[in-house]
């Protein structure tokens, strides 16, 4: 995408050879972007460097110093003292249950709102849209009481249910946009064949919306993995903690163990980074499909 559009003659060893005055502007722009990129990469870099330094190195050497030997002890220490394994398992379980289930429920609702004509569809769609805007913190207190009454405190189901509720608005809204863009001729031919709504939904609309669904799946997985506020009030004991709670717990318990602390941070963001790097292309693709359709 990047290099292909640029004539090959203008690039030599990654450095552009100026041919016109406009190229000087380009080079200036490129240098500026490199500088901003370095600044943008710094925080992650510092955290990583700290995480592989021994304690004495952290205290005596510069933040910019690259340690002679990578010291992975911080990682083992963070794993031993922190709650990362339990929390990671919890987070993974919650995401694996919540994301497909929530997405399916959202897709079904978006299908009803975009393909079946009934009186209040616009109002319902508006109500969903509204929900995507209101901060969850508004509902935090009463939500705690609801989950308490259901006996689901410290239970993964206790966060999965509200996660589905709070995830719906955005997903319904986006999928509604995609489903509306699918040609209505399909509906007709399905009905002529004697198929009902269920067939139309499962065999046609869902498969046709794969790019959108895949992208939403990944985004929702990341959002679920990262969620903090709801988990904070519902999951109060150590055994039920999710990863963000474990990070915060570790940080308040071992305030000055900088090495393990940063190792902990790195390990906690690793899954999300891997997911981003793996699915980046597919997910950008899905995004632009959405932009072109409509």
């Amino acid at each position: 995408m990047s290099t292909a559009t640029l004539p090959a003659t203008r690039v030599r060893n990654g450095i552009k050879v100026p041919k016109q005055a406009r190229d000087y502007v380009r080079i200036g722009l490129w240098i500026a972007l490199v500088i901003v990129m370095v600044i943008w990469a710094m925080p992650l870099l510092f955290v990583f460097l700290t995480s592989v330094k021994s304690e004495s190195d952290i205290f005596t050497t510069s933040s910019f110093a690259i340690p002679g030997i990578l010291d992975w002890e911080n990682y083992t220490e963070a794993l031993d003292t922190g709650n990362l394994v339990t929390a990671g398992t919890n987070s993974l379980f919650i995401a694996i249950v919540k994301v497909p289930l929530g997405l399916f429920i959202a897709a079904a609702a978006a299908f009803a709102l975009s393909r079946i004509r009934f009186k209040f569809d616009t109002i319902i769609l508006g109500a969903f849209a509204l929900g995507s805007m209101v901060p969850i913190q508004v509902a935090l207190g009463p939500l705690f009481k609801t989950i308490l009454d259901l006996g689901l405190l410290n239970n993964p189901v206790g966060v999965i249910l509200p996660y589905i509720g709070f995830g719906l608005p955005m997903q319904v809204f986006i999928l509604h946009g995609f489903f509306t863009a699918v040609p209505k001729e399909i509906d007709e031919s399905v009905r002529v064949d004697g198929g009902g709504n269920l067939r139309l939904f499962l065999q046609f609309i869902l498969p046709l919306s794969k790019p959108a669904l895949a992208a939403l799946f990944i985004l929702d997985f990341v959002a679920t993995w990262n969620e903090y506020a709801i988990a904070l009030v519902i999951l109060q004991n150590k055994a039920s903690q999710t990863v963000p709670l474990a990070i915060q717990g570790f940080q308040s318990q071992f305030t000055s163990s900088y090495g393990p602390l940063n190792a902990f941070t790195i390990m906690s963001i690793l899954p999300v980074l891997i997911i981003y790097l793996l699915f980046q292309r597919y997910f950008v693709q899905g995004m632009f499909t959405g932009a072109v359709k409509g």
């Binding site: 429920i105 959202a106 079904a108 609702a109 299908f111 009803a112 709102l113 079946i116 009934f118 569809d121 319902i124 109500a127 969903f128 929900g131 209101v134 508004v138 509902a139 935090l140 207190g141 009463p142 939500l143 009481k145 609801t146 249910l161 509200p162 589905i164 509720g165 709070f166 719906l168 608005p169 319904v172 709504n197 269920l198 939904f201």
Partner: peptide, 23 residues
């Protein structure tokens, strides 16, 4: 539309709308 809409509406009302009104 109900079979398609009901699960979403239920989750949305119980875990989003009701807590907000309750707040």
């Amino acid at each position: 539309s109900l079979p398609f809409l009901a699960p979403a509406l239920a989750a949305y009302v119980v875990f989003v709308i009701a807590p907000m009104i309750s707040a």
